[in-house]
Amino acid sequence: MAYGIQEPLSQQSRFDADGFIIDPDLWNEDMAQFIARTDGIGKLTANHWRVIDYLREHFLKNHTIPVMRHVCRVTHQDPHCVTNLFGEDVKKAWRVAGLPNPGEEAKAYM
């Protein structure tokens, strides 16, 4: 389901119809904070950043999405940390981390 993107018009072209950034290199920390506010996640804490940093690192290395439980384990957090921090919809974490559309099948299970 596409997100209601509320970024300024100048920013909208950076996102695709599903609300994912098109070019992950154009992402920055301010944008992450902005998306988190827009999506109702609130202010990003150190625990959020551990997840975001790992998601980006994993994506830039493998170009795919990892098992979320694995993300929690390697960032030394509770096994449900991603959903606890970002909400049930894992697509929000992916969006905040400024990563591109993971594809139809991944979206179905996020």
Partner: peptide, 20 residues
């Protein structure tokens, strides 16, 4: 595969599962 996981990504995931 449907998810678009290439061999290195699969290996990475499977190694993670072995550790877990």
């Amino acid at each position: 595969n449907n998810l678009g996981l290439p061999q290195p990504a699969l290996l990475d995931t499977l190694e993670g599962l072995e550790e877990e």
